[in-house]
C-alpha cells in the first residue's frame, strides 16, 4: 500500500512539559486511521503538528512523499475538537470565506457548497446566522467546510460529539464515502464503537508515547486470549462445572439460548489447540454454543493503558 502520511520520531516540548516523545505513525492511502488515547495524551498536539499549527521540536512529517510545507495546507481538511464558527456571520458567507482561505476560488466554492448543502439538506440555511442554528446544525456546516476543498487527507478530532445518533450516522456514512472516493482519514475519538466500525488501522498514544500501533485486525489477533464462550448440555451440571473449574480458568457467562445448559466463558491455555478443546467439550456433553471471545477495541484500549 502507498503511504500518504509518514510521521517520523516527532517530539514536542512545551517548556519542561513533554507533549510528544518520539512518536512515529504511518498512514496508508485510502485507509481510516484511528488515533486513540486518553485525554491529554498528546493526540491533539500530533494533529496540530500535521496541520502545521505547531512545529515539532524534532522529527519529520512527510505528506505524499514530500516534507510538510505551507502549501500542503490545501491538501488537508481538519475538523478540530474545539470547533466553532463566527456566530454573527451568515452561513453561506462564512462557508465561502473558509473555503477561499483553503485556496478555492469563489465560484468553485459556491458550486461545491451548493452540492453539499443539497446533499445534507441544509440548503435553506444559507442566509441564516450561526447563532440561529442548533449545535448539531452548526456541526454539519463545519463538516462541509472541512471536506469542501476535496483534501487528500482528512483529520477529524472527535467528529461525532454534539451530533444526535441520526446525524452521527449520516456523518459516519459521509466519511466512509469520502474514503471510498479516495480520501485518507485520520480519526481521533474516544468512542470505541466507532473505532470498531470504521478504523482499518489504529495507534494508541499514552502519556506522550505511542504504545500500540497496527492494523485493527492484527492487534485484535495479538490480543486474543484464547477465550471462548460455550454452552454445554449435560446430565449433571454441578459435576461437570467442577471438572471444568479444575482444568481451566472459567468465568460465568450469559447469552441467549433456547436450551437449559451450562454457560461459561473459558480461558484455554495456549498449548491447547482449539479442535482438541472442542472434542474435549463434546466428550462431556452436547455442545450448543461455541464462540471465540474477540477483544473489543475498548478492552484493548483499557488493557494497554493499564499495562503502561
Amino acid at each position: 500500500m502507498e503511504k500518504l502520511l509518514v510521521v517520523n520520531n516527532v517530539s514536542k516540548n512545551y517548556g519542561s512539559y513533554n507533549a510528544l516523545n518520539n512518536v512515529s505513525i504511518t498512514v496508508e492511502k485510502g485507509s481510516i486511521f484511528g488515533l486513540l488515547g486518553p485525554n491529554g495524551a498528546g493526540k491533539t498536539t500530533l494533529i496540530r503538528i500535521i496541520n502545521q499549527i505547531t512545529m515539532p521540536d524534532s522529527g519529520t512529517v512527510i505528506l505524499d512523499g514530500e516534507p510538510l510545507q505551507p502549501r500542503h495546507i490545501q491538501y488537508i481538511g481538519y475538523l478540530p475538537e474545539e470547533r466553532g464558527l463566527y456566530k454573527t456571520m451568515k452561513v453561506g458567507e462564512q462557508a465561502l470565506y473558509l473555503a477561499q482561505l483553503k485556496g478555492l476560488s469563489k465560484q468553485e466554492a459556491k458550486e461545491r457548497l451548493k452540492y453539499w448543502f443539497d446533499r445534507l439538506q441544509i440548503g435553506d440555511w444559507w442566509d441564516k446566522k450561526i447563532q440561529e442554528l442548533s449545535k448539531g446544525m452548526a456541526q454539519k456546516i463545519q463538516f462541509v467546510v472541512t471536506v469542501l476543498h476535496k483534501p487528500k487527507l482528512l483529520i477529524f478530532d472527535e467528529p461525532f460529539s454534539g451530533f444526535d445518533p441520526i446525524n452521527a450516522n449520516l456523518i459516519k456514512d459521509e466519511i466512509l464515502k469520502l474514503r471510498d472516493d479516495g480520501a485518507t482519514v485520520i480519526f481521533s475519538t474516544h468512542r470505541m464503537e466507532s473505532v470498531e466500525e470504521m478504523c482499518d488501522h489504529i495507534a494508541l498514544i499514552h502519556k506522550s508515547n505511542k504504545i500500540l500501533d497496527g492494523k485493527l485486525v492484527e492487534i485484535k489477533r495479538q490480543y486474543r486470549s484464547n477465550t471462548f464462550e460455550i454452552g454445554l448440555k449435560t446430565t449433571n451440571h454441578a459435576a461437570i462445572s467442577d471438572v471444568l473449574r479444575d482444568k481451566f480458568e472459567i468465568f460465568p457467562a450469559t447469552f441467549k439460548s433456547i436450551h437449559d445448559e451450562l454457560q461459561y466463558r473459558i480461558k484455554v491455555p495456549d498449548s491447547v489447540a482449539t479442535n482438541d478443546f472442542v472434542s474435549y467439550l463434546t466428550s462431556l456433553g452436547q455442545l450448543t454454543h461455541f464462540v471465540e471471545v474477540i477483544p473489543s477495541a475498548s478492552d484493548i484500549f483499557i488493557e494497554t493503558i493499564k499495562k503502561n
Binding site: 466553532g84 473558509l98 463545519q142
Partner: peptide, 17 residues
C-alpha cells in the same frame, strides 16, 4: 477574544499563519 470564545480559531489557523 471572539474568535477564541467561538472556537473558530483552530479552523482558521489550519488555513493561514
Amino acid at each position: 477574544i471572539e474568535e477564541k470564545t467561538s472556537r473558530i480559531i483552530e479552523v482558521i489557523i489550519s488555513s493561514v499563519k
